[in-house]
Design a protein around this nucleic acid. Sequence first.
DNA 1: CTTTCTCTATACTTATCGGTATAGAGAAAG
DNA 2: CTTTCTCTATACCGATAAGTATAGAGAAAG
Lengths: 188, 188
Amino acid sequence: MDNRAKLLEQALHLFAQRGYDAIGVQEIVEQAGVTKPTLYHYFGSKRGLLEALINERLQPLIDRLAHATSHANDVPASLAAIFQLYFDFAQAEPLLYHMQLAMWFSLPDNEAFQIVAVSSAQQQALLESFFVRASSFHGNMRGRQRVYAATLLGTINTYIGLWLSGAIQATPQLIHQAVQQFSYGIYS
Amino acid sequence: MDNRAKLLEQALHLFAQRGYDAIGVQEIVEQAGVTKPTLYHYFGSKRGLLEALINERLQPLIDRLAHATSHANDVPASLAAIFQLYFDFAQAEPLLYHMQLAMWFSLPDNEAFQIVAVSSAQQQALLESFFVRASSFHGNMRGRQRVYAATLLGTINTYIGLWLSGAIQATPQLIHQAVQQFSYGIYS
DNA sequence: CTTTCTCTATACTTATCGGTATAGAGAAAG
DNA sequence: CTTTCTCTATACCGATAAGTATAGAGAAAG
């Protein structure tokens, strides 16, 4: 593994454990076994390091979400696929997802939040466009895309947060229940 | 307003805007118009300042939650009261609630998270005991208190997060819908 | 009128913060 | 053999981090 990958991995571990603001670049380079100029050569700044982490490792989630939200002719099936997609990703990248989750509700002027906000907005936009498409099949959804997208993400993240803390298992029954619970707030 | 109160207020503003880790004590005392020994006289440390903020200003929420969860003979009514209580508190203390919310899903080894975790655990415990009581009326709830308490908080915080960002209004209809949505995942 | 206690300011500590100037090692290209 | 480019280390920058030693101001208590 080259030094760039080592830096990304150690930064993820440290950010996910104690938070972006609480970690200094010195600690990252020590854990990675390199020195500061190496980090600044590859990423330019501490901010650039987090941006690289987010852009590179979170992109698969965005891509799969774009695919899952591209059609809305069977809304319940699409919702189940979206839940499944998030659970799969969180299981494949628990540290990354936990880090993103910690910044989800975070604070507007915080640097880490602003970096993560870009991909958060992408997810929100994809989900909103899904609900716009769905409203051509379910007329009573119209105009509520923002709230639907946000509550869907809220429900997903609540369950993933529970799973990350070990309180629940990610069974097919759980996915089904989560979809049902969310749907009940939608079709009414 | 005395210096102690000034320090608490300015610390809340700064913590809620940029996060605990991103704020230095120097900035707090400057905003409050005092000097560092004053802060250390009243709170002993930066950590003690956040602890005082949480303990003093979040206590009313805990107290009201303890009252609302003390009986469970009418579960839907109690759930509505709990939702209403959280919305009322978030409207009365938006900065404090936003700060707490930002630390909700936060990271285990982070100092700010550990401080807020105490009151989070209190809320979780009160809600769990409510669901234990409720299970004497609804037998199928037994053994699921932890998950119910966590998903209830998740639903509440999703809606409050939406309200804090200005996306929704806190109408009685919204409370009703949120209770319905949560209940649908419970009684099944 | 003096002692005592609470509170606050000046000035300082050591350690760490993010970031960089300089230089050198090593491989690739001519 | 020399030039060029990528990568990394030593040593440093000014600024800021949390926290404190010392002293004094002002009110309360004796």
